[in-house]
Each structure stands twice: as C-alpha cells, then as structure tokens.
Design a binder for these strands. Structure first.
Lengths: 368, 368
DNA sequence: CTGTTAGCGCATTCAT
DNA sequence: ATGAATGCGCTAACAG
C-alpha cells in the first residue's frame, strides 16, 4: 500500500506510542529494549512501510555508506570485472558505490572527484588516474579515504592496489625466449600510462637478463585499443625489421596486432608470436587464441574496496600496498616453449598462483 | 591546504561577514546579490576550500541528485555500454549514479532496490529485472521514479525503454531465408527472460510468414552464455535434425555455437549459418565474424536516463515507452543473400537504418 | 539586496 | 528501559 515513503521515524513513534528515540533504537539494535516494545515498534514499522532515510542519518552520523569508483571507461573490457569485484565487496559490507567514468578526460576526472567529495562518500577507489600528481594529490587529499589502482602518488595519501606489471612482461619475454624467439618488439601502449611504463621496464629488464639487445626502434607506443595495436604492428612489420615476437600493452592491442598479421599474411605463431596482457574474455576467443598475462581483475576491485573499508574503519596515514601478481596463460598465439628453457622460468611457483586462476577469484566471475 | 572539508557554510559566512543565507545564495545563484558581496563570498569560499555538503542539502531539498542503475551483471558484455550511456547522460545533468549488480539473484535484486530506496535516489533505471511482477511492482512503487529496460510491468508504474526484440529475430530469419536456408533452429536463451520470449515470438512469426514449419524440437532453451550456446548447439546437431541455420538468443550464445561447430567439424556458414544478437565487441572479432542483430546499447542507457530525468522533472503517471529498433549487421557467419529475396525484405527501408549504425538516426526512434 | 527564523529526519547526550 | 532536548549543514520562507 504505502507508496513513496514519506513516513518518518516520528510517524512510527506516534503510531506506536513511544518516543522517536525508542524507534531509532530498534532500528539500530542499540541499547536495551524490552522485547515487547521491540515487537510493537517492528510491527508498526512494517505496517507503515517505514524505511529509514539514510540522507538524514548520514547528516548526523557523518557516514554515507557510499563509495566512489572512478574508472576511465567502463566500456573498456578491463574494468567491468573490477567494478563487479568492488561492488560485491562493498555491498556485502552495506556500502553502495557510485560509478564514475572519466572518459579519459582530465577535466572529467576533476569533475567526478569534486562531485564525490560533495556527496561526502566515505571513500573512493580511483583506477588508472590520468591526472598529473600536482593536480591529483590535492583532489585526493580532500577525500575521506582513497585507494588507488595502478597508480602511485608521491606521499602516502592513499592506499594502493597495483598489478606487478613489470613482472608480467618479464614472464612474457621469458616465455617467448623459451619458445626460441630472439627479435622481440613491444607495442607499448600510451606513454602516459603508469602501467605501460612498468610493462616496458619489465620488457627491457627481461631482454637484458637474457643478454638480448633492446632496440629502441622495436618499442612503439600506441593507443590502447584495437586500431592502435593494428597500426603499431603494421608499422613494425613494414619497417623491415625481422621481428619474431610481439609483446603487447594489453589484449586489445594484441588482438589488433593479430588482425594486422592476418592482413599482411604474417602467420601467428609461426612467423611472429604474440602475447597480450590482461586476459579479457576476448583473448581466448580470437583466432588464434591469445597467449596473455592474466590478472584477476575481480580481485583488483575486491582488494581495493577491502583495503578502502579497512582504512575507513581504522584510519591510518601510512601507505598500504597490495600487489596483485599476474600469471602467464599460454595459448596458441605463441609456440610451445623448449622444455629446457621453460622449466627454469617459474622462479617462485607459489606467488601468483598457477595459470589456472585461483578458485575464489573466479567464483565472482561465474555467471549464473 | 584545506584537507577534508569540515568547512561549513557558517564558517564561510562568518569569515565573509555575511549571513549563511547570503552564502547559500551565491552558491545557488539565487536571488539578486550585489556583485561586490558575490565576489567577496566567492573569494572566501575559494580561500577556505569550502565545498557544499550535498547530504545536508538533500535533506532539505528532498532531492539527492543521485540515480540508481540496476543491472544483472556489469561483467556481461551487454551492460557496460548501457552504463556508459546512462552515466554520461546523468553526469551531464548533474546526477551521479549508483551501480548495482544483482548477479541475477532475486534476493539481491530486492536488496539493492531497498538500498536505493533508503538512499532516496531521485530515480532508478532497472535493466532486465528478473523478479516476478508481484514482487517487483511493489518495490518499484516505493521508488521516486522508475524506468525499466527490457521489461514490462502491468501498470504504468514505470517508464520503459525496450528493444524491439521480436523485430530483431524477424530480420534474422528473413536474412537467413534470403540466403537460401530452410531448416532453422533457435537457441532461445533462458525462458525466464522477457526479451528471450520476444525474440522467440519474432522467430516463430517470421517462419510462419515464410510458410515454413516451426519445429518445437528446433527451439532449445539455454543459459545466455558461451557454454550454454555451445551445449545447445551440440544438442541440435547431435539430434540428427538437418539444420542449416541458427538464430541465437545473444552473441555469447552464438559464439558458443560457433565453438561447437568447430568442434564438430560443421562449417560456418557453408553447412550452418549463425546469427547472434546484440553486436557486442566480440562479435566482429571471432572467426568467422558473426552476423548479428545490433542494438545501440549506449542509446538504451542514455535514453533510459533521459526518460528518467524527464519524469523526475515533470512527474506523470502515464506510461511512456521508448522503443529501440535493432538492425541486422551482415558478416561472414551467414551467406550472402540471394539478391532477389533480399531486395524484397526491407519493407520499411526508413525504419531501422542501415547496418552502418547511424549516429543521429537512433534519436529518431524515440517517442518520448 | 540581505538577515532571521524554521525545520528537513535522524542519532547522540543526558536525564529519568 | 525509555524520553527530552539538541544539532548535523543546509535551504525556504518571510521579513526588513
């Protein structure tokens, strides 16, 4: 019956013949209340269809039980799972989450951060912030608590969840070398991306570790999308360099590269092996299925919110960091590794879990 | 400098030597204010780093400038674009949006709807609600304003944005028949899905319109995911029926079917033609690229929020409905249509627009 | 053009 | 175990 809840705690109190305080107590299970009045009040609440007004509640408690999740673009296949992980974790703790797309625009990053501030959210998870430090940090300081994903800021103003991207590309390079490849190129994504720089660092380190030269011409930046990858791959092939392996910024770039290969008649993996990064759903479905560096995106989102809630509960100024370790998933876009080389690769078999992802993390991903 | 905003309107007022009311006025551009005091107040606001507390504001204005977006699972490739369209539109109007995943569970659908109610959001967009009418409708009535996506409820309690699913499968069937196919099966998705039933209806109607029999054995329900499609396709093929065309509930199901075909050595499109639905990114990237029924998901989200904001601005009880018309995108998973048959197909050439999705044409579909 | 008085719906503090 | 008073930060009436 009761339509839009205009019913207030005062209405309930009057109807039940008690004070508003008593109603508030049964709502929040606080203080001792006689079972009898509790029953009575509950019954009236039910009958009137009363729902507490969390706006009023927030004003006095100074907690909104709301979080902000800032992502560049939920349409980018990397972020939906993060969002799921974040929302599941938040909801389980009674929090709701505002989803904010920045569409990769600095101004909108500023705008949503301001908006979240006015909303007085209890905390914010910011993914892949593009803003430079001098603009970002002041904005973050104004938030109640912050967790950054894949971005480091100078001071410990925020908790951090990050993927060990450098380690990921290191694994990729080792895998390719293990498969007999020697002339590797990297389609490095946008230079502005912190993760991209890390991946590039891992690429360089792994090459050096294998006593292979790092040819600057074989490191090409590109937009992190299909076309970016296709374009960059074409440039590499048409440059006349003898490349036999491609390490890519992410799966979209890698799949773009795959398309370029098909267009140019380059066979994968016979002529060129391709490794992606992220293991988005697409990766396993393209032809050939893409070898890639998997990172549990659900886990990133869940960890970020867990860390956030932890810091909300017990505020600390020190920085906390959670590192998510990626793992290589070998598929058909790269050759089988020579058995000798590969068995040497997994230095710390325990760390990141095997390529067969951790069950708990996957559970969140399952559909229906 | 100013850290977490404890600064209130009173602080600003005191510092500027005016009343809180005056500050409020410059914040909201209300009433006439002398340019001088406006400048003064603005300067103090700036200096103190004051940010209005929207919680307090909402308590008195009874508007939160927040919306809820309820989706089954943001991880399902169908929803991120809807979310983007919704968020873009909301943000442009000064609204923020709570993202809520129901994970296809009835209880969680109830839970998030209750939560949004307590948050006093100004409106809710609910996508593909799974709850039965008798549970859903009461919950919706408690919301301020509601727009439903791909779900109809008896009374005009909500605005509706829906895809003309029946028309979509009708197009698919005509396309297949135009390509010379006669024995069509439908992988129909979950029977509980309203859209699924519509698509099935379109399938039946189009077959009848072409004087083809509808074989109940060739209509198989399945979970709306890859495995569901693969499994269902296998069942169809192994049943011994001579099928030469597959109309699928959505692209994931279709891609699952593609995998089953590959596994069973069935050639696509030579032996069997396959049509998906939705045109998710994947569809164009699998092998062979998937012919599918495209619907502008961004537009669904944007239209839903536009309709919602419209109803928030001027509440009405009558139902409003926006119908989004899908369009067939022909790719390699279906044969080229016989020219004769195909030219006959587009009865109303203006309606759905060409396969190359027109940007503005979508707007033309609305009937506010 | 500006200040004063109220009160939004609730939880917190102190009484009883 | 319950009630009364107070105020969270802000805007909506009315003054002036």
């Amino acid at each position: 019956m009761a339509a839009r809840s205009n019913v207030t705690i005062a209405d309930v109190a009057r109807e039940a013949g008690v004070s508003t305080q008593t109603v508030s107590r049964v709502l929040n299970n606080k203080g001792e209340i006689s079972p009898e009045t509790r029953r009575l009040v509950s019954e009236v609440i039910q009958r009137l269809g009363y729902r507490p007004n969390s706006v009023a509640r927030s004003l006095v408690t100074r907690r909104t039980l709301s979080l902000g999740l800032v992502v560049p673009d939920i349409t980018n296949p990397f972020f939906p799972e993060i969002a799921r992980g974040a929302e599941d974790t938040a909801l389980a703790a009674g929090y709701s989450v505002f989803l904010c797309n920045t569409t990769e625009q600095a101004e909108r990053e500023v705008a949503v951060l301001r908006l979240l501030e006015e909303k007085r959210v209890d905390g914010v998870v910011v993914c892949s912030a593009r803003l430079p430090d001098d603009q970002l940090v002041p904005l973050l300081r104004r938030q109640r608590t912050v967790v950054l994903v894949n971005r480091i800021v100078p001071e410990g103003a925020a908790g951090v969840v990050r993927v060990d991207d450098a380690d990921g590309t290191r694994q990729a390079v080792r895998h390719l070398i293990g498969g007999g490849r020697q002339r590797l190129a990297m389609l490095a994504g946008p230079p502005s991306s912190w993760g991209g720089r890390e991946r590039l660092r891992g690429f360089r380190e792994a090459l050096r570790a294998a006593d292979l030269a790092v040819d600057p011409e074989l490191i090409v930046a590109c937009p992190p999308y299909l076309e970016g990858g296709a374009h960059a791959a074409r440039r590499v092939f048409l440059s006349g360099q003898a490349v036999d392996g491609l390490v890519c910024y992410n799966d979209l770039v890698a799949i773009g590269a795959l398309q370029a290969c098909r267009d140019l008649g380059v066979r994968v993996p016979e002529d060129v092996a391709v490794v992606g990064c992220d293991d988005i759903l697409l990766a396993s479905l393209v032809t050939p299925p893409l070898t890639t560096i998997r990172v549990s995106k659900y886990d990133i989102g869940a960890s970020a919110v867990r860390l956030l809630l932890d810091r909300i509960a017990t505020p600390r100024r020190e920085a906390a960091e959670i590192v998510i370790r990626p793992a290589l998933v070998a598929r058909a876009s790269t050759p089988e590794p020579d058995s000798a080389a590969e068995t040497a690769a997994p230095t710390r078999p325990a760390a990141g879990g095997a390529a067969a992802g951790p069950p708990a993390a996957q559970a969140g991903n399952e559909r229906g």
